[in-house]
Design a protein around this nucleic acid. Structure first.
Lengths: 335, 335
DNA sequence: CTGAAAGCGCTTACAG
DNA sequence: CTGAAAGCGCTTACAG
């Protein structure tokens, strides 16, 4: 519980060696006899000395921080995705003795991100979503800040980690098609998010694979607010859609509520599937067919990749992670 | 888009002044003629110079970072609360030129928090929940790290900001009692969280106020997993509870699902109320009576308080924020 | 009003 | 194997 900050100088004086030596003992770099190294290490242990990372950072022009950029948009802030992802990132960062600095950006305001890099407060950045026109990514590139995106980027130069949303959506759609469902609708969110595009492609892929073509009028994009969702649901019911795939759990929750309100039964009258099997859907009755991604692992891998890259290792440009299709009651056939 | 980091030295050389002068122009401290100050500032503007916060930090023994400690427990990580709160914190921190460093701790592992303070990476810390036996708070106190808690702490010396959960729960309970409801149940989570205790007290307060006493066998605490929730719901139904108050939206969601599964109607057969009006409940049918707190504002106020405290200003020990009771369909009387 | 110098707590060529 | 010294980019008494 001591609090007088002991420095490398104190140790040097106490041990009658130079601070160079102490520094070497700690870092393990440079020639040093095992004897002195041990003597130093012992003292450090006993005195519970912890090097001042800030000072170290100044000397090495590093901060030992990475920036975690997440959307500050109100509609997205609720998704458990970012928090779970952060858990993975944070765990790995810690193990490398890095810390995670958060930065919330919105579509029109990346001021926080700029501050972070202009103030030299991070050595690298994780972008947690990708946009078709990706301001933050462009900014980081222009300023030569090492970064990695979670989510596919159209710019192939960018190091990116993503679950394979396209294949995932294709597989889910395929299964549904093979069950004989034809009137299949898709509801998606913001089209400027790459992930939305990828899912849409997967949906179309599945149709093509089976020599079918999707009914474009049943593909609803940019459906972001509850009012819009309700309107779409009404239209789908009227048009007797057999099954609807929701691009995220938030949309799905709204869809389910609207159906409930209208007393349309799931899966009896209409089937429903979703992306992500987050807490938003957990324990729903009926259980909801959905795609599963290991978001924490995604965070961990991303963080490791960024750290590797910052150390100058060459890393894979594009990493695609798996998924799991989990068929539940909400898409079952009812006799 | 320049990237050669320009330093205070460069500016001094360029302008034929000492770096002392440049520093003074920037900080605004110390005597300096308006003329030179302006000359310096102009140059800085033009060169898009940004001081290196790390170096500044070293010189002043500050980091310009605050730590935001959130639970890494899986059960809690999903609650939108922390993310929304972080949004408020982050906004204020930015405006003071501080950054937010996250740290995820669990009940058994506060290693991340320790690293943060031992590595001298933060000037202050925000604890986002309080525990009856509060390890993190004790640690910070022992190490003399300035901190503020979100949530009431039993230790009155600790600077704490909280919504008035006790009064909120009392008021909600009162309203229900005044409507003639007597068989009122309460389901709460982890009892080691102070907030759980506060809500329980509020519940009891309401009964006492009206000269009644709560049926303790209808107070269910430490109900944390879905299995337990389901069991509790079954018992409540059997005992013909009239109304149940859920201590958080996650519990409430599970309760609602279980009731739905058992085909118990809300509010017809049983009434339901919840805390927080988060996205988890949004657009539920029926709409759910619940307490509302402005979580983002909570984050903003907390951050401001911490920053004030770090600057040595005296701050209020305990700040209680308001709440709103929002009565909806789920507690309505059905004729 | 302005500047030379020491200092924040480390690292790292360079010399021995 | 070890150390003196310069440096990372700022701030701040102290002197003028």
């Amino acid at each position: 519980m001591e609090n007088k900050k002991v420095t490398i100088d104190d140790i040097a004086r106490e041990l009658n060696v130079s601070k160079t030596t102490v520094s070497r003992a700690i870092s393990g770099k440079g020639r040093i006899s095992t004897a002195t190294r041990e003597r130093v290490m012992e003292y450090i242990q006993a005195a519970n000395y912890k090097p001042n990372v800030i000072a170290k950072g100044l000397a090495k022009s590093k901060t030992y921080n990475i920036g975690f950029v997440m959307p500050g948009d109100y509609s997205l802030v609720d998704l458990p995705f970012f928090q779970e992802c952060m858990l993975g990132v944070s765990e790995i960062a810690s193990s490398y003795d890095y810390d995670v600095l958060i930065s919330m950006v919105t579509e029109n305001d990346m001021g926080q991100l700029k501050r972070l890099v202009e103030n030299h407060k991070v050595d690298g950045v994780i972008l947690t979503r990708t946009l078709v026109k990706d301001g933050p990514a462009e900014y980081l590139e222009a300023n030569q800040v090492p970064f990695v995106t979670i989510g596919t980027s159209l710019n192939k130069e960018i190091v990116q980690i993503d679950n394979d949303h396209r294949s995932a959506c294709r597989e889910l759609t395929s299964i549904l098609l093979m069950r004989g469902i034809r009137k299949l609708a898709l509801i998606g969110g913001n089209k400027t998010h790459v992930v939305t595009q990828k899912r849409l492609q997967g949906f179309q892929d599945a149709f093509l694979e089976q020599g079918l073509s999707p009914d474009n009028s049943l593909i609803y994009m940019d459906v972001e607010h509850n009012v819009m969702i309700e309107k779409v649901v009404e239209e789908m019911v009227e048009r007797q859609v057999e099954c609807v795939i929701c691009m995220d759990d938030s949309i799905c929750t709204h869809v389910l509520n609207k159906l409930r309100k209208e007393k349309i039964r799931v899966p009896g009258d209409i089937k429903v599937a979703s992306f992500y099997n987050s807490s938003l859907l957990e324990s729903n009755i009926p259980s909801i067919t959905s795609l599963n991604f290991d978001v924490k692992e995604l965070g961990m891998i991303t963080c490791r990749t960024l750290l590797d890259r910052m150390e100058g290792k060459t890393v894979q440009r594009r990493t695609l992670l798996g998924y799991e299709v989990s068929m539940k009651e909400s898409t079952q056939n009812v006799l």
